[in-house]
């Protein structure tokens, strides 16, 4: 039950190489691309706009609605078949809930902000890459936010606590536990934590402790991407 060294040679608390770009879809109100390892997520934001069906309208504030989709050619397809499914519907709700704590849509009552997340290529950590890209796209759309949101997975592979599992680790033969988390980087508060699998209380604590460095690193990538759009060329 030992996992002595990571297959891609990363340290146990190291994220995969990242890349972010803002404003990639000109027709959208806000958009972003986020790439972590082999996982590529594109997010586009439209709105605030009129909300239908009308029974969802909230006269106090606007709401946020997410749409997660793995493109049909995106993955190897041996575990999850891409396309609309029960799983993607659940992720829609999970992403909206992970993003809503930072949103302030009180200036836009009765409206909706639509977030579309498309995954061009998947290698685990898709919902996290989606949330990270969506948070960038929302900021690009000029919507008031308390903070950005960064998301990645922590977990256990074999006997080691690791940060940012890729697909080969997630499907590690001797057992792996994957915990996607989303964090508001300024305060360090969690907006998402999902867990199914075996892990002890101490190991979760260790995993969250290890995540702190990664949060900062990911936030810096986001900050840089947002500012790069406005740098003088």
């Amino acid at each position: 039950m030992t996992y002595a060294k990571r297959e891609d040679g990363r340290k146990f608390d190291e994220l995969r190489p990242m890349e972010a770009k803002v404003g990639v879809i000109p027709r959208a109100d806000g958009s972003a691309m986020f790439k972590i390892g082999k996982t590529i997520a594109y997010a586009a934001v439209y709105g605030p706009k009129a909300l239908h069906p009308t029974h969802l309208r909230n006269p106090e504030t606007g709401i946020i609605r997410c749409n997660y989709n793995m493109m049909s050619f995106s993955g190897s397809g041996d575990r999850i078949r891409p396309g609309p499914s029960r799983r993607s519907k659940e992720i829609n709700l999970v992403m909206a809930k992970a993003l809503s704590p930072v949103m302030d849509l009180s200036d836009y009552p009765n409206t909706v902000v639509d977030v579309f997340v498309e995954l061009l290529q998947t290698d685990a950590g898709t919902r996290c890459a989606g949330i990270t890209a969506a948070s960038l796209a929302l900021a690009d759309a000029g919507i008031a936010m308390k903070d950005l949101v960064v998301a990645f997975a922590v977990g256990k592979v074999g006997d080691k606590v690791v940060v940012d599992l890729d697909y080969s680790e997630e499907s590690f033969e001797e057992g792996a536990t994957d915990i996607p988390i989303a964090v508001m980087p300024r305060t360090g508060k969690l907006t998402l934590l999902q867990l199914d699998g075996d892990i002890t209380r101490e190991e979760i604590k260790e995993a969250l402790e290890k995540s702190k460095k990664a949060v900062k690193q990911l936030y810096d990538v986001q900050k840089e991407a947002l500012k790069a759009k406005y740098e003088e060329k």
């Binding site: 900021a139 000029g142 008031a144 936010m145 308390k146 950005l148 980087p185």
Partner: peptide
């Protein structure tokens, strides 16, 4: 960008695009 700490101290006042959290003033927009 959102979440960046702009200022520290109660004598500085937050206006459009910012908010106060404790002593700090935080950006809420790009």
């Amino acid at each position: 960008v959102p979440g960046e700490e702009l200022a520290d101290g109660m004598d500085i006042l937050p206006a459009a695009g910012t908010y106060r959290d404790g002593d700090k003033i935080i950006a809420s927009q790009v």
